[in-house]
């Protein structure tokens, strides 16, 4: 099996067949181990940030960490940062849902139908590696600068990892399962719903996990380029208003968000795919 995959900066393999995957817990998936050395390292670096900003680095763009934390609490609680953050999250999730939905549907179609697969795969292969930010300028011409454009960019970014993983998952469905469904004389629709989709779920989830991380990045980039609202735009505005503490507050919030999103989807995955991970042991 040729390992097919896309951008993933979270857990690996778009190759759920890796037996090791069930055995080796993902980074961050384990809690409560003695990681005090690591936490100390993080604290030491934050301390270095604080000290360097206070004593050595003289720049408006390098506020002490304590001021960033204060800005985060001031701006993030019911103030502007809170609202732009909500707007970004909504944009991201809308784009994600649309892109993922399309990706799953197209992936199933491509995975099942040889004609579609042969017809569309060259196009997919050509569009897939297209760096998404490169699409922002032409999409501004096509769709304007609103949420429609940014949502399309996000959906586009999400589409391909999900599509490719889904198609791969569909093709990797155990033939015996399909034959079983056939001998029980289940129709096409029932076979897809009861066999093909659940069996492809490990692959689909890999795609979703990859895409979620990507969706956040792309949302922020689109907002930085096209403005309007959102945390990416906020980040730029605060930078141009020379309020670097607020800007870093947004960065910190993004880090927390990225961490939380990954945690959530990994948790959901572990729950939904309990049968899959248990099997790997």
């Amino acid at each position: 099996m040729v390992m097919q995959s896309t951008s993933d900066d979270t857990l690996p393999p778009t190759r759920p067949a890796d037996a090791a995957r069930g055995r080796v817990p993902a980074l961050g998936a384990r809690v409560g181990q003695s990681r005090w050395t690591g936490l100390l390292l993080v604290l030491a670096l934050l301390g270095l940030w604080e000290l360097s900003a206070r004593f050595w680095v003289d720049s408006a763009n390098w506020p002490p960490f304590s001021r960033v934390v204060m800005a985060l609490f001031e701006e993030g609680t019911g103030r502007e940062l809170f609202f732009v953050f909500a707007a970004s999250l909504r944009l991201m999730l809308t784009g994600f849902v649309i892109g993922a939905g399309l990706g799953i549907a197209l992936g199933v179609a491509i995975g099942l139908n040889r004609f579609l697969r042969e017809m569309l795969s060259p196009m997919v292969e050509l569009l897939r590696p297209l760096p998404v930010p490169g699409l922002v300028p032409p999409l501004i011409l096509l769709l304007g600068i609103d949420a429609a454009m940014k949502g399309t960019v996000v959906a586009f970014a999400v589409l391909f990892p999900v599509l490719i993983n889904t198609a791969q998952g569909v093709r990797a469905v155990e033939p015996t399962l399909l034959d079983t469904a056939r001998t029980f004389r289940h129709g096409r629709a029932r076979s897809i719903l009861a066999v093909i989709l659940p069996a492809s779920l490990p692959y689909i989830f890999s795609g979703l996990r990859i895409s979620l991380a990507l969706a956040l990045i792309v949302t922020v980039v689109a907002e930085m380029i096209a403005g309007g609202t959102g945390i990416g735009y906020y980040l730029m505005t605060m930078q141009y208003a020379m309020r670097s503490a607020e800007m870093y507050a947004a960065v910190v919030l993004l880090a927390v968000t990225g961490y939380a999103l990954n945690f959530i989807i990994v948790s959901v995955e572990r729950r939904v795919l309990r049968w899959y991970f248990a099997q790997q042991d």
């Binding site: 011409l141 769709l143 304007g144 600068i145 609103d146 380029i225 403005g227 730029m236 505005t237």
Partner: peptide
């Protein structure tokens, strides 16, 4: 108003009828 971070975006949006 639709704020953007710079001028690179507003005019294409004007040309495309978005604003």
């Amino acid at each position: 108003t639709t704020p953007t971070a710079g001028g690179a975006v507003g005019l294409p949006a004007l040309a495309s009828g978005a604003v």
